[in-house]
Amino acid sequence: MAVGSKLRFGVDLVTFFHPSFWGVESFAEIIEHARSQPRAFWDRILDSVQASGVTGVELTFSPFNWQDAIKTYGSIEAFAAELSRRGLELASGFFAELEAAGDFTEPGAQAALIEKAEKYADFIKACGSDIMVIGAPLRQTPGAQPVRFHDFDSARKIADFLNRLGAVLHANGVRLALHTEAHSIFASARDVDLMMLLTDPAYVHMCPDTAHIVVAGSDPIQVVDRHHERMIIAHWKDALGPMPADTPIDEHIHERHQPYFCGFGLGRVDWPAWARLLRDRGYEGWAILELDAAPDPVQDIADGLRLVRQALLPIYR
């Protein structure tokens, strides 16, 4: 079985969000470079993905999003051509709008989110993919006042919106996959179980992220095994362990995550068990090798792919 015959490997572009890779000192300077030299910025990213050995790309937040790609290359077709000439495909697109939407239970906010998602879905389909990964709303910092419980009633309201969004995307030929983002309402075992219970499996699927589930204090093997039939794409990433229960959940939470992520095989994820799980459950599809803001992303992705080929694919086969 050749590599990629059942599993296809890609990378989320957040992997390239480290100042060292760009020879600058801060995240703000990366954004400035992307704005001032967009073609050089995007060409380097796509060339680096190609050099790493994976074949799939997952777009994410700006300056790595779909609008930036269109603006840089002039059209959807031109961006798709840039992927194709490098032997790359669009694996998926990450929809980051929900986390920043505030009270998205308000009808006007929901209509705006659905409109943005439909436009994104058109882009995804035109580039040859059919998967939109979406981040879930963040939880509240434990102990914050006034307390907002994530109980059945609050989860039901979120699930209702996800069901309707998933149905809209389905009508446009795109599948919605909920991402297990640590400190969101969809990462710990209990929260994943609750949201999977309340959403319709015909319209809401799952994108497990192994590292984020570990950071949330749960076991990715157990969590995914319970809901394996909902998985249509997965983020393969390692983590050192769970974060403290009193971690502040605010606009800096994603930066707080980064010290807990590590290279493949250096953390808590049981990769042989993961390979057996995917084999036994018959999973076929994209495996997104992701490292949040890696200083040397090309080498890190290549190293991760080497580990997969040498140690995991023999198990998966």
Rank of each mutant, 00 (worst) to 15 (best):
V3W: 02
G4Q: 13
S5N: 10
L7G: 09
R8S: 08
G10R: 01
V11D: 01
F16Q: 07
P19Y: 10
P19M: 10
S26K: 05
F27Y: 12
F27A: 04
A28W: 03
H33F: 15
H33M: 15
H33Q: 15
S36W: 10
P38D: 13
P38Y: 12
W42T: 07
D43N: 14
R44M: 01
R44F: 01
L46W: 13
D47T: 04
V49M: 02
A51H: 06
G53I: 03
T55A: 06
T55S: 13
F61S: 08
S62T: 14
P63V: 02
P63G: 08
F64H: 02
N65Y: 12
E77Y: 02
E77K: 15
S84V: 01
R85I: 05
G87E: 06
E89A: 06
S92A: 12
E99H: 09
E99C: 04
D103N: 15
D103S: 03
A109I: 11
Q110P: 00
A111E: 15
L113C: 02
E118Q: 09
K119R: 08
A121N: 03
F123G: 01
C127G: 00
S129H: 00
S129Y: 01
M132P: 00
V133T: 07
V133G: 03
I134L: 15
G135E: 14
A136S: 13
R139I: 06
G143I: 03
Q145G: 01
V147K: 15
R148C: 06
H150W: 13
S154G: 03
S154T: 11
A155V: 09
I158K: 10
A159P: 06
D160Q: 14
D160C: 10
D160R: 14
G166F: 07
L169T: 01
A171R: 12
N172K: 15
N172C: 03
V174E: 02
R175Y: 00
T180A: 09
T180I: 06
A182E: 12
A182P: 09
H183F: 13
A187P: 07
S188I: 03
R190V: 08
D191H: 09
V192T: 05
L194C: 00
L197F: 10
T199P: 02
D200E: 08
M206R: 04
C207M: 08
T210W: 10
A211C: 11
A211G: 14
V214Y: 12
V215E: 09
D219V: 10
I221N: 05
R226V: 08
H227F: 08
R230I: 04
I232F: 00
K237A: 07
G241W: 14
M243G: 07
M243R: 09
T247N: 12
T247S: 14
D250H: 06
E251H: 11
H252V: 06
H254A: 03
E255Y: 08
R256C: 05
R256P: 07
R256D: 05
P259T: 07
G267I: 05
G267C: 13
R268S: 11
R268I: 05
P272S: 14
A273E: 12
W274Q: 14
A275I: 09
R276A: 08
D280Y: 04
Y283S: 10
G285V: 02
I288A: 00
I288E: 11
E290K: 10
E290I: 06
L291M: 06
L291V: 01
A294G: 02
P297H: 07
I301A: 02
D303P: 08
P314W: 07
Y316A: 00
